[in-house]
Amino acid sequence: MKLGDLSLAQVRRRLADNELALRTGPFATRIHSPMPQVAEGLLRLYADFPLDSGEFSDFHVRVGSPTGLRRWLRPQINFWFDGHSPFKPLPANHAFALLEWGMNWCIAGHAHHYLMLHAAVLEMNGRAVVLPGDPGAGKSTLTAALMLSGWRLLSDEITLIDRDDGLLVGLARPVSLKNASIDVIRHAFPDAVIGAPAYDTHKGTVAHVRPSADSVARVGEKARPAWVIFPRWREGAEARLSPHSRADAFLHTASHAFNYSLLGSLGFDLNAGLMDACACHDFEYSRLDDALRMFAELAA
């Protein structure tokens, strides 16, 4: 059964009763929340995702109001991971964004059976591209645009590399857009489903794009890495792909990984295996159309 088979009222009731377990790729998350925003956001962005039986969940999370007097003065929300709250409370209208960050935190802090890089991954014709990106480099905008033009989304934030076979494992969770890129995507892809924006977060305005149905349906298929591409958006730049040294790509991904040093020599081997399997490039662009054309040529 999919989340989208439930009505909004049913989703709200299940969330309030802690009876909703959502499967996103390898992880089942049990979500407990009385917040209407959480129900609306989930139904809008996760409708194609399967519900889990709830017998066993990898993560037990809750998004709700902190107790105490403050809640009468200024409504706030917090995130709990099995009873522990790793973050500071936020304004109540950031509830859905907080759930997304919390779910990322769960994976990044616990899924050490994978090497986890801070990068997006998409796949086309059986070959996957890994997009590490510094903040502001336009990684998420490019990721959303590629997904909306037919690439299969594996992940927007966390690249999972399987320790047994070095293949990339998908999550297919929504793509997080910030500030101006929300309108860029809305304009370029009028049919894209975008969740309610959260204003004035520590990242500015944040809104999430619903993953494509194909990405969600094929989330269980691992992908073979073929390229590591460092995107950079620069005003007025012509789209240009140029070689990037593998050694530098290795150091960059290792230093931005969530658990590279924790995995010790295994982390080294997995990251080296990724670089061995990939051609590494820098990619500079200003117009999305050019970027999409260049990626289509690459994958042809």
Partner: peptide, 21 residues
């Protein structure tokens, strides 16, 4: 052990090995 439990144990062993080192 069940397939969905094993990754948690693998991850926990990685953490312990790292901390011990």
């Amino acid at each position: 052990l069940p397939g969905s439990v094993r990754p948690h144990l693998t991850a926990a062993r990685s953490i312990a090995a790292k901390q011990r080192q």
